[in-house]
């Protein structure tokens, strides 16, 4: 059996190799697929902190993904139309600068995660799933009715945003940015897991009373994790919007929340490489099977069933021979 560390490095290196190989061969479309996989992996890495480490089954992570997307969309829209954003006394200029957009995306989704977490974490189990779903749907319907930014039709951004020193219009360079964000998020996630907060979060998932009895508030630990989780997924949303140069309410849809959960379960819940492997597999299946049949989700469903029934630790669990944490 393979040590988990090696699986993680292998998965990340594999994704990089695919993108670089495609670049060498001039396969632009494959680079775009790899970029999509990296961004979905980033979003799922965020979810994995809440779901895998904390046992918080959030069916509302699309809220953060969408907020990141709309943070990008709104800032870029005002920049491309040369109209500042008027918020009462406050006037904000739009921007096409990725670092600024990312910072806004992270802050906005972290704030939303804090508010949603504060309310949802009073509950547990199936109620937590329902409340997070409800928050996600609130954002979804709000985006649909927000005609200033395209409403149901969404909001196209004509030119990809810029990053100092990088030509983001070159696919492999934009992949590099997304890949770097993914690696950073994985490092943060690994750090969190081995830090006191990770120890407490892991224990809070298993026995909240135990955590409280040693002087740590289990709710506070989960809230901190939920905020970090939401912020990472929000960043992924901003990147995803930049990949497609398009933002739409679909980024807020509950189907997307569900897909993120599927990615994590496929790859391995609570495992560092889980979201990466899950996202790569998802994008590959979507591309290959999607080319063969419109009903490719049937096959995805069959694979998911197989994993849930026969490989509780997901693909990482199969490779390392160890079942993951019990959620």
């Amino acid at each position: 059996m393979i040590p988990e560390r090696l699986v993680t490095i292998g998965a990340v290196a594999g994704l990089l190799a695919v993108a670089l190989g495609a670049w060498a061969l001039g396969e632009i479309f494959t680079i775009t697929l790899a970029t999509r996989a990296a961004i979905l992996a980033l979003a799922a890495t965020g979810l994995n902190i809440a779901l895998g480490y904390g046992g918080l089954v959030s069916l509302g992570h699309a809220a953060f993904f969408g907020l990141g997307g709309y943070a990008m969309g709104i800032l870029a829209f005002h920049a491309q139309s040369y109209t500042p954003l008027e918020l009462g006394a406050l006037t904000i200029e739009g921007t096409k600068s990725m670092p600024v957009i990312w910072l806004v995306a992270i802050c906005v989704s972290a704030l939303a995660a804090w508010v949603i977490g504060l309310l949802s974490l009073r509950t547990g189990g199936v109620y937590f799933i329902m409340i997070t779903l409800a928050f996600g749907q609130m954002f979804y319907y709000f985006a649909i009715s927000w005609s200033a930014y395209g409403g149901e039709d969404g909001l196209p951004i004509y030119l990809r945003n810029s990053f100092p020193g990088v030509d983001t219009l070159v696919p492999v360079q934009f992949f590099g940015l997304c890949f770097a964000a993914l690696v950073l998020a994985l490092l943060l996630s690994a750090r969190l897991r081995s830090a006191p907060l990770g120890l407490a979060l892991n224990a809070a998932r298993q026995s909240p009373a135990r955590v409280a009895a040693v002087g740590i508030s289990p709710t506070r630990v989960k809230l901190v994790a939920f905020v970090i989780s939401g912020a990472i997924t929000g960043l992924a949303g901003a990147l995803y919007a930049d990949l497609n140069r398009f933002v739409s309410p679909a980024m807020f849809s509950w189907q997307l929340s569900g897909e993120l959960i599927v990615l994590v379960i496929l790859g391995g819940v609570g495992r560092l490489a889980g979201p990466v492997i899950g996202a790569c597999l998802f994008v590959t299946l979507e591309h290959w099977l999607g080319g063969l049949t419109d009903f490719w989700h049937v096959w995805l469903g069959a694979i998911l069933l197989g994993v849930v029934l026969f490989a509780r630790g997901g693909i990482v669990g199969l490779l390392t021979g160890k079942a993951g944490p019990h959620v």
Binding site: L199, A200, A203, Q206, V211, V214, G215, V221
Partner: peptide
């Protein structure tokens, strides 16, 4: 925390008393 080792369980106690359960 049943999945955690004895050492992890007890370290959690030592950490909590020190007020350091939220450290990153």
């Amino acid at each position: 925390a049943m999945e955690d080792s004895v050492l992890e369980n007890v370290t959690l106690g030592a950490t909590g008393r020190a007020g350091g359960g939220y450290g990153l």
